[in-house]
Design a binder for these strands. Sequence first.
RNA 1: GCGCUCGUAGCUCAGCUGGAUAGAGCACUGGUUUGCGGUACCAGCGGUCACACGUUCGAAUCGUGUCGGGCGCACCA
Length: 533
Amino acid sequence: MKQRVSALLREKLGRDLVLEKPRDRSHGHFATPIAFSLAKELRKSPVMIAEELATSFGEVEEFASVEAVKGYLNFRLSEKFLAEYASWALDNPSDFAKGDNKEKILLEFVSANPTGPLHIGHARGAVYGDTLYRLAKHLGYDITAEYYVNDAGNQIDLLGLSIQLYARENILQEESVEYPESYYRGEYLDALAKGAQEHFGIEIFNDTTRQKELAMWAKDKVMEIIVESLSNTKIHFDTFVNESELYSDWDRVMAKMGNNVYEAEGKLFIRSESKGDDHDRVVVRDDNRPTYLAGDIVYHNQKFERGYDHYINIWGADHHGYIPRVKAAIDFLGYDSNKLEVLLAQMVSLLKDAEPYKMSKRAGNVILMSDIVDEIGSDALRFIFASKKSDTALEFDLAEFKKQDSSNPIFYIQYAHARIQTLLSKATVSQEDIKEASLKDLGENADTLLFHALLLPEIVEDAFVSRQVQKLPEYLKTLAAALHKFYYDVRMIGSEDEAKLLKLLLVVALSIKTGLSLMGIDAQDRMVKEEDA
RNA sequence: GCGCUCGUAGCUCAGCUGGAUAGAGCACUGGUUUGCGGUACCAGCGGUCACACGUUCGAAUCGUGUCGGGCGCACCA
């Protein structure tokens, strides 16, 4: 819709211009302050310019009016244009708000280490990534969702050790198990230890030489736990890449880096300082063990060799300092690091009874993503996280999280959709009457609601392109509000305009349902009242 | 100390390609259709958009600085 208007204006005025949606509907559906910027070069007042432009438009099918007001140029869309667009959407519901982008994108997100279940902090990046993915798919992009599994290195060894320690204390009932400074703890170790006992036999717990073997078995089990909790939240991945399988390419990749890596003090360094990093980084330690960065170098090389137009990584904000060295590596490998876009998901901090709740994976007092899903459901979790700008730290109280009333906007939106379904089920006119009804002469309020519902395509596009997914839930909230108000103001069933009013509601329902599905949420046809516990 | 990031209503947050009177939800106060689900609707209360300067016809939005919060500054991931 907006694209169409933009294109029309470009054709008429011969230039691109800012198009906005005025808050005040008396200013039309779209408006532009173009006359202000033209004022200087034309040496005329904006008011005059706007008036000249307005009169120069003449008759355009898409516009009911073009008015100049105080220097602004306000456009009112014609009923015909809106009605035709709405009818098209209802006839092609699965194409509504779709796009025809062709770009090939690799989106990497979550990528949590397979050393423990996902916690609430991971959930934010997971929801953000999956929402972007759904938006991109809908817009036609050829996008792949990928999970990078860090199944090599210290943390995996630590997992093996942690299981042994846990088993020695809780299964072998040893009295004095000595714990090192860092190891993992948490409820999940219990299942892992028991599983390992069944799989390997009890003797593996005291055999330090078999720590690695135990760890490699355990990380697959942990991945199963992770994937299950992702799928319970309808978060989908197309591909998983294991770090441990990338090192066979090591020599070849290092050769590509050329003299951008060098040896010193028995270690291998990368010249990242020359690319804006604080200093050069160690890639391989003097005992020959690769650092974390080494894995990311071979991984990003592999990504670029696979050949995408654009790469998006979603990282926790605490990793932002890591960006320069990865970009440096990509440049050194001979690729364009500008193709890599790193989006940061800010930390989530929890309040429990209004007190900050400190989480530490090592201490084992984490809030698991699966616990939250059990308590409030996937829909509410997704909605809450998708509603907040990802790069802003988010703070919420666990008690608020548990609320299942209207303070949770997901209920408000679902109720709007359910209301429409209820009305449709009470219709006194036929489906055919509704389908054939004209959307003209509906009056100002209905026109506003229709316009609002047809705005979804712009919102979807904007939300993805700007990577600001919260624009979608924000839009759905205001659309739901408009629907509720309309419902309150206008009696529809039995009205002489019933067919056209219900057709209008169908458009609103389509928009809500499509919008929710892009957030991984199913629209409901009925609201089930929560029982008071 | 250096870098990144954020600072909008009592609380949680939108708004930020500069544009017409700064928004929502929650909380608080008061209302609502002889009718479609009151899980709704309306109104009131509440703001020096952290502060200062600058750019501009116009700044919550852009720039610089100050103050304050978060994060990073590993051969940990």
